[in-house]
């Protein structure tokens, strides 16, 4: 089963208790896989109780990237979280564990 890691790179960081993840297609043709794979439901299911709030997904067609906003996702924010990854830098990479969904009902759907 291919994972999102085969199609994307990430850079992530924090803003208060929000973790913001930029997911960038490895190649332009991988961008539709990102769009199909990244849904609020799948992201919430992946991180379980580490993401307490809503998840928002913003496509950026101009650079073949998707911004994933996870609210209530940092254990209270960088200054008071009990996690070692205080700013969500490592957490963004966790998104690459998602099974890749091929667009338009392709055979690799999770």
């Amino acid at each position: 089963m291919p994972l999102l890691r085969d199609f994307a790179y990430v850079r992530s960081g924090d803003k208060g208790d929000v973790v913001s993840v930029g997911v960038i297609a490895r190649r332009p043709q991988d961008y539709p896989v990102l769009l199909a794979s990244l849904t609020p439901e799948r992201v919430k299911a992946l991180f379980g109780d580490w993401v307490q709030g809503a998840v928002e997904i913003y496509p950026m067609d101009n650079i073949e990237a998707v911004v994933v906003i996870m609210r209530g996702a940092l254990g209270g924010g960088a200054t008071r979280t009990l996690r070692l990854d205080q700013t969500g830098k490592a957490m963004g990479n966790g998104l690459l564990r998602l099974e890749a969904v091929m667009p338009s009902g392709g055979s690799e759907a999770a």
């Binding site: 790179y9 850079r11 960081g13 924090d14 803003k15 929000v18 913001s20 930029g22 997911v23 960038i24 928002e56 913003y58 950026m60 067609d61 101009n62 650079i63 990237a65 911004v67 906003i69």
Partner: peptide
């Protein structure tokens, strides 16, 4: 690209005290 997407909220509206930038139109 890597830094354009870093630590932002809605990329259509990057709010700063000097103005609002739309990162989804940058070429």
């Amino acid at each position: 690209k890597e830094h354009l997407v870093y630590e932002i909220g809605d990329p259509n509206r990057y709010l700063m005290p000097d103005g609002v930038a739309d990162f989804t139109r940058v070429h």
